[in-house]
């Protein structure tokens, strides 16, 4: 007779590695909110100026701003975890030599910085 314990719903609370994993997966929740906001914005754009203006007003609501700020932080956290995993899943070889992991991680962050600069240029016209 062997004895087998089944995993309960709270299995992930037993270990800090599992908690970090669940936190990574949970970053999708504020992102869903952000995407819904975006979709609502596009929809309101098709419905004319009054509708667009009220969407802009809703986006200025402190609670909405806070949730979207959370979405930004969550997506940066998810990116940080993903960037570290990337060179392990897609090891890049140049001239038979493996490109060091830190270099690939740094490259990805440089890409993020690039996107931020581009967004700042488009939306605020700085630079």
């Amino acid at each position: 007779m062997t004895y087998k314990t089944e995993l309960g719903r709270t299995w992930w609370l037993k270990n800090s590695a599992f908690k970090a994993y669940m936190l990574r997966e949970a970053t999708v929740l504020p992102l869903v909110f952000f995407i819904l906001c975006m979709l609502a914005g596009i929809y309101s754009l098709t419905r004319g100026e009054a509708s667009w203006n009220s969407w802009v007003a809703v986006m200025g609501n402190p609670l909405v701003l806070a949730l979207n700020a959370l979405a930004l932080v969550a997506s940066l956290y998810h990116a940080a975890t993903f960037f570290v995993l990337f060179p392990r899943v897609m090891p890049i070889r140049l001239g038979g030599k493996k490109v060091p992991d830190n270099l690939i991680v740094a490259g990805q962050w440089a890409g993020v910085a690039g996107v931020f600069v581009l967004a700042a240029w488009i939306f605020w016209g700085v630079l």
């Binding site: 270990n15 590695a17 599992f18 994993y21 997966e25 995993l85």
Partner: peptide, 9 residues
């Protein structure tokens, strides 16, 4: 696999 990643740790 959902890349929990603890196996490698």
């Amino acid at each position: 696999c959902t890349f929990v990643g603890y196996c490698s740790e």
